[in-house]
Each structure stands twice: as structure tokens, then as C-alpha cells.
Design a protein around this nucleic acid. Structure first.
Lengths: 234, 234
DNA sequence: AGCCATTGTTACATTCTTTTACAAACTCGA
DNA sequence: TCGAGTTTGTAAAAGAATGTAACAATGGCT
């Protein structure tokens, strides 16, 4: 039995194109212009996944998300107009599972659709999705939203590189990571012998997360080897 | 026993070329056109590493990644078409260990293959996590943060060599350790007969941890043999 | 193009490690 | 116990790695 996807999108051009492409991937795809049409379809054929445009006439995507989240187990991917932080953050807070930004790359969308459907099917058999938040000291790193918050929820802005570096560290707590490995982890780049990028980045990150950057509690230097991120439980 | 790599790639030219090059690196390499062939090979000869093209007829690379990740411990490197963030993010979210972009530089690919195989092998041999803290006298050695704290929590910073040396001592309390052995424990270095590094290091460590460095309580000299670390309970 | 934020590079200061040199302590036989 | 030979202690210099400020390059956005 193929899986059922409903696209809720009021721009018919986009909707048709998307539906056609997804059908080629061997999904069963229904199209809805708005929330009412979606409900009709749902009534006779429950969906595994909803692709919801965030900007709709009438009931908007966020409202649909909240409602469906409460009463159904379908996965929800939001289609957002721009890479607009607000939409994506609010969308995920409302309970969407993922989002893509328009104009979207087909392969990206397919990959996310497939990934989410797989995750949904695994529920019950496989391990539940790991907590997307990593806690250490007074900080929490929210991987989904790619940002750092303190215990009060205040946001400490991180640049992309800083986030990637911290993310790499949190994935390998207690392991000494060489500069070479770190450069590879954060940007898939080859090592040049006199490259000091990582040192500078570590310095910048320390200024943001350490109480005293000269006596770091989290990112520890290992002379001649690299850096270690201290595990939170110690 | 050489390590077994399976290449899953439908373009036979690329696949052959890659397989040939890897065999020269003394790996055992199998070739598969698709997921089914891969399964056949796996059934009679488990792999250490899978090199998977992300765009395959039938079951694609990401799907293979997720399936294999769930049931095997093989490393997975994705071969992606373009260098775009999307593939990388998604590939790694799905559980791949690494990726390379086509057209790929052979040396880069080899480096990644070698790295990943090395990392996989380390997992089995890695030393079990020691107790996070070693107590002796008024001191606690915080292994995670590589520093020394007294009973009030005040930090006595240790340099890398000092930490490694103290760490080596605490792992062998009451045992006489020769200079040669100590040098080997704290770094990967050869012994030269007139090497005084350890003596200097012991001196510096004593200044930090001993009440009276000329009458050491912890790091005791054994003339003509080396040093002993006194057991905490004696 | 011009603006702004981010990222990478360079240069220099600082810190850490090893070597060197010599003083002090130890061992052992007479 | 003395003294020669050896081993250890340690300050200081030399060498290597890291921290970091300031500048340059890059990239996204309008």
C-alpha cells in the first residue's frame, strides 16, 4: 500500500507541479486548495503526510498544523514562502515536523518527505527521535532551530560557523578532536598545514559561551592535539 | 584481514574506476549496481564500509543509508552529485557518516575512506570511560576538563603534559614507573637516553600539587629507577 | 553597486614543551 | 666517612603551539 500525501496549497501551478513530481516517486497524492477540501479528502482517505503552504486563504497553514496535530498522526511539512525565521520557528512550535522554503529544490523536498515518512513508520519499532536539544551548563543548543538559549530562554546568537562548531563538539563530548577533524566536520574542507581558522572560531565561541574565556569550562585546549568538549554530566 | 568495501553505483564506468583505485590501496572491494546486488554481497560477506551513490535507480542512496544504519555497523559514505548543503545535511541526518561530491578527487576520497575505517575500528578498542574524577589528598583530578581542583573547588590549571603525567600516575598508583614508560604514557614519542623531559615535568607538577616540593608526598623519586605515585589510601 | 554581517588570514603576544647546563643529591667501594 | 661517578633537581633558553586583535575577503541582500 503506497503512502498517502495531501498537498494543501492555493497556487494551482505550484500544487500541480508538486503533485506530479511526487506521484512519480510512487506516492498517492491528493490536492487541496484549502482546509475545507483537505478535510473532505481526509474524511474518506486518511493521510500519512500533509504538505501545507503556510500562506493560505481562509484557515492558514499554522492553524491547520495545530488542528491536525491534535487529532491525527500524520506528519506535517510546511511550505514557507521565504527563508523567514519567524515562519519556521512558529511552524515548528505549532507542531510541524519539518519545513521547506520556496522556491524549493525538488530533491530536498523528496528527501524530507521520504525521511519523515520513514520516521513515522518507524515509530513503535525503532528508537524514538532523539531530543533535538543539547543541554550543557546553563545553555541549551537547539539543533532544529540552530540557536543557543540560556536557562531563561534568552537567545545567544551564533553565526553559522559557530553553530556548526558547537554542534560538532556536542556530537563528540569527551573526545579530543583535531583541528583537521573539526574543519572537516564543520565545512567539509581539507586541511592546510598553517590553517588557524579553527583556533579563531574556538576563541569566538568561547567568548559567547564561557564565563571566563581564559579559563574555559567547556571547550578545553589539548596542546598539540586539538580541543575537547567536556561532557555536561561531569 | 583486509577490510571490505562495497561500492553501490549504477554508472559502471565510475564504479569500475573507483573499485580499481581502491583495490590498489589494498582494500577488498565489491561492486553492486543497486540495493539488491548489495544485499547479495552483504549476505555472504559483511562490509566494513559502504560507498553509496545517492542517485540510484530503484532504492536510492538515502533509503539504503537508513536501512543499513538500522541493521549494520558498516560505515557509510555517500557519493553526491553536487556540492550543495542539502545533500550533506540530509545525508547526515539520515545517518551517513560522511559524503563526497562528484566529480571527486581521489585523494580526498581515499582520505575519507581511511579516516572512517580508522574511526570505526577505534570504537571497539577505545578505552572504557574512566571514572570522571580521581581523588587524592585534598585534590581531585577532573579528567573531563583536564584540570585539578582542590576541596573547595578552586581550579589549579594543568598544562597538557602535566595533566597527562598526573593522569598516568593516577592510573598506576604504587607502581614504579621508569622515565621511558612515563614518556610513552604521556605522548607517542621515542626514548632518547639523555632525555630529561620527565624530570622537568615532575618538578613542575610537584610545585603545583605538593605542599613542599622538596619533600614530596605524592610523586616519590626512586633513585635509578623512576618515580612512584603514592596510593591515596596509604 | 554598496551595505552589512560573517568568515578567513595575518601578525604578534602569550603560553607550553623540550633542551641545556649546572648544582645538588645519591650510591658505593675503599 | 670520603670522594668519584652517577643520577636527579631545576632555572633558564630555545623552540613550538595557541590566543587573539586587526585587517581582508567573501557572500547575501537590496
Amino acid at each position: 500500500m503506497t503512502q498517502h500525501i495531501i498537498i494543501i496549497e492555493d497556487d494551482s501551478v505550484t500544487r500541480r507541479r508538486l503533485a506530479g513530481a511526487l506521484r512519480k516517486q510512487i506516492y498517492r497524492v491528493s490536492e487541496a486548495e484549502d482546509a475545507d477540501q483537505m478535510e473532505e479528502i481526509l474524511a474518506r482517505d486518511p493521510a500519512d503526510l500533509l504538505l501545507v503552504d503556510i500562506n493560505l486563504e481562509g484557515k492558514d497553514g499554522l492553524t491547520i498544523t495545530r488542528e491536525q496535530r491534535a487529532k491525527s498522526k500524520a506528519g506535517i511539512i510546511l511550505l514557507t514562502s521565504r527563508d523567514d525565521q519567524i515562519d519556521r520557528i512558529i511552524g515548528l512550535e505549532m507542531g510541524a515536523d519539518d519545513y521547506v522554503t520556496k522556491p524549493f529544490d525538488k530533491r530536498e523536498l523528496f528527501a524530507r518527505v521520504k525521511n519523515l515518512l520513514a520516521r513515522i513508520n518507524e515509530i513503535g519499532t525503532a528508537t524514538p527521535k532523539p531530543d533535538p536539544v543539547w543541554q550543557f551548563g546553563r545553555w541549551q543548543l537547539n539543533r532544529m532551530r540552530r540557536r543557543l538559549e540560556d536557562e531563561n530562554g534568552a537567545v545567544e546568537p551564533l553565526t553559522r560557523a559557530e553553530f556548526e562548531l558547537l554542534h560538532a563538539f556536542t556530537r563528540h563530548p569527551g573526545v579530543i578532536l583535531s583541528r583537521e577533524r573539526l574543519l572537516d566536520l564543520i565545512q567539509h574542507r581539507q586541511w592546510a598545514p598553517d590553517n588557524r581558522t579553527i583556533d579563531v572560531l574556538v576563541g569566538r565561541l568561547r567568548k559567547k559561551i564561557e564565563t571566563d574565556p581564559t579559563q574555559p569550562d567547556w571547550i578545553i585546549t589539548v596542546h598539540g592535539e586539538g580541543y575537547v568538549f567536556a561532557s555536561p554530566e561531569s
